[in-house]
Amino acid sequence: MIAFLRRHWLAILSHVALIAVWWLFVALGDVPKYIMPSPVETIASLGQANYDWVNNTLVTGAEVFGGYALGVVVGVGLALIFSWSATLNAAFMPLLVSLNMIPKVALGPLFIVWFSYGIGSNILIVFSLCFLPILLTTARGLKEVEPELIDLVRALRGSRWQIFTKIQLPGALPYVFAGMKVGAILAVAGAIVGEFIASDRGLGYLMLQVQVTLDTAAMFMSVLLITLVGVVLYALVLWLERSLIVQDARVR
């Protein structure tokens, strides 16, 4: 713990300073609560039992993590298939890049028409937002292997699977994680957008509800909780990266 503080005290300081500035701004500027609540008022909104904070946070969290996990599995899986088949790669990679140009947010209303609203369609929105960056970076990483290394394994009559597990995949991991980090940020945005369009649960839904009554403190709290979900996801990805990738093999 002390070692952690010693290493990251500057980062912790900047976070605390931001909250302090927020607090001072509200207190000294005499800003009304419905425009901007103070940090204390924001925290106090957690006391409102009818906002069902725990459940709403869990719903949003489930959408973010579910859609994201799906995005990672499909993204890495497709990249692997594309790296094995030049034909599939030539046919579908450009198509996926074109499809990626669709603002996924605009698909939200369609998903809701097709799948009705709820956790399921929000997971799909999250997935559609975050799987492509993961696919693209993974595909790139799988291609980065030195051809001589492949020659080395082929000269030993190594199988395609051995090339993949021993050379390609570990070599591509830094790229996979670069894509996963971008995807993590998009995933959180996707879940909230989905809830904004149509939902009956989740932090995005709650935000729209309390907006009507001008409970700005609760809106602030919702944003904080959404951010927290994102931070947990991101930290998980960083932790995984740190435990899977050797220091100097990382993309910096």
Binding site: E146, E148, L149, L152, K166, I167, P170, G171, L173, I245, V246, D248, A249
Partner: peptide
């Protein structure tokens, strides 16, 4: 080969 091509990990 010309490069050692050791696996970094």
């Amino acid at each position: 080969f010309q490069q050692a091509l050791l696996l970094k990990w």
